[in-house]
Design a protein around this nucleic acid. Structure first.
Ligand code: MN
Ligand code: MN
Ligand code: ZN
Ligand code: ZN
Lengths: 140, 140
DNA sequence: GGTGCAATTGCAACTATTTGCATTAAGGAT
DNA sequence: ATCCTTAATGCAAATAGTTGCAATTGCACC
């Protein structure tokens, strides 16, 4: 069973109604293989369905994020980017001076995730985190 | 010397021009003692200076953030919040289901910060990080 | 204390994202 | 297959934040 279908079926089990719009957003996002903006999803979506709307895309992405099927990141590019969890795991180190984005191994977060869970009962999303700071070039 | 003056003097040393608008934003932010939105800063600012503008506040906050004097956080409240580093250190665990915000000790990040620095030469801002996930109540 | 020039400002227009509301349609029950 | 409830949609308007540009002003140099 494809990743898309797993997401769709789980959403249905959780009480969400499955509309053609939602299926298309999930399909585009799951097959993008990279970070993608809401507007890019909307553009691709319009090739497949006549009448649809950017706010539907945003609302669907909200659901996917809230339900843990998508990650949402600010990479200092002016627009929020989305991906499924098939993209990853890794973290993005975003320089707040030059906006460079360095991909890093997310294993450095594993111990921290475990500690947050045991101390606070909080299940942190750490598979695709953005962390701001100053890159090596800008420090020098 | 007050915290405000340290910030202002350092900005001047780094080549930024010190305008009354910037001094007021720094003063409001440093004395807020909490997270504060750009609009709240603007409202307080208008009581002190006749003509000024919200985009000046945003631009000043950008400078303060880029130069490492302010932190900027998305706490799922609809608006970005700012604070000086006197507020903190701690992290915010933000539940993506119920929007609850749990304050947590930032020491859980110390080892990670060190590893990121040694592995990638990246100086991560970890004094006042927001981490999304699912809170204990929503997990149950 | 003037002068020059680039950085900063106010303003207006713009982009990104969210929201209220009337209409449509998913899917459980019959 | 049809009916019913209410979640989801499209659309338009609102909100949050950014940007281009002409006018202003900080401050380095004299
Ligand atoms: Mn990524
Ligand atoms: Mn805080
Ligand atoms: Zn950099
Ligand atoms: Zn929660």
């Amino acid at each position: 069973m494809s990743h898309c279908n797993t997401i769709i079926d789980t959403l249905r089990q959780r009480g969400y109604r499955i509309t053609p719009q939602r299926e298309i957003v999930v399909d585009i996002l799951a097959h993008a293989g990279r970070h993608i903006t809401a507007e890019e999803i909307f553009d691709q979506m319009q090739k497949r369905i006549r009448v649809t709307n950017l706010s539907t895309v945003y609302r669907t992405l909200d659901v996917l994020w809230e339900e843990g099927f998508a990650c949402r990141n600010d990479l200092s590019e002016g627009k929020t980017v989305y991906a499924t969890h098939q993209h990853g795991p890794h973290i993005h180190l975003v320089c707040r001076r030059c906006d460079a984005v360095l991909d890093a191994n997310s294993q450095v977060l594993d111990a921290m995730g475990e500690e947050i869970r045991s101390r606070y009962g909080f299940d942190a999303d750490l598979q695709h985190l953005s962390i701001f700071g100053i890159c090596a070039d800008c420090s020098a």
